[in-house]
């Protein structure tokens, strides 16, 4: 990804309702990587339509997780495939970064714990996997040949 914030490659229509998109990071600049994720999400908006909220949240969290934790400041590439159906969007995200610790997906914050205790004890991070788990179903993760592959399904709306 270039210093000007990166670019997305692809987006070529395979079928009317399925797209592959790629994000290439040719710099380890975290800010530029975040900018590339933002640009991709904005570019996808017309394709996802007006009820894109849940999909956009899940994509943002899953892609930023790859940038921040799997690649953790290293160069890399993310392969994204979206299959858009009338009621749901199926997402497949592949990367060659670090595997998930223990090869399992994080649980995310426990929502009930959030509501007890003092304001000062509220977490400032860790909402990402809570959001993914609230919005997505059919989460499947595997590590194969040095690649992480995450699949999930998000109901539109």
């Amino acid at each position: 990804m270039a210093a000007d914030g990166g670019r997305t490659d692809g987006g070529s229509a395979i079928r009317r309702d399925r797209w592959r998109c790629g994000l290439r990071f040719v710099t380890a600049d975290l800010r530029a990587s975040h900018a590339a994720v933002r640009d991709l999400l904005i570019a996808l908006r017309p394709r996802l339509g007006p009820d894109r909220g849940a999909v956009e949240i899940v994509l943002a969290e899953a892609l930023n997780n790859v940038v921040e934790h799997a690649y953790a400041g290293n160069d890399g590439r993310i392969a994204l495939r979206l299959t858009v159906a009338p009621r749901e969007v199926r997402i497949r995200i592949g990367d060659s970064g670090r595997p998930m610790p223990g090869l399992v997906l994080p649980r995310g914050l426990c929502p009930h714990r959030l509501l007890h205790g003092d304001v000062c004890d509220l977490p400032e991070g860790g909402f990402g996997w809570l959001l993914i788990r609230e919005l997505a179903s059919g989460l499947r993760y595997r590590q194969q040949d040095g690649r992480n592959l995450l699949r999930l399904v998000v109901r539109r709306g």
Binding site: E61, N64, C120, L122, P123, E124, G125, F127
Partner: peptide, 14 residues
Amino acid sequence: IDSSGLGAIVASMK
């Protein structure tokens, strides 16, 4: 707003 933005709003509240 994504989870990082939400974290920033929580930090601002604190």
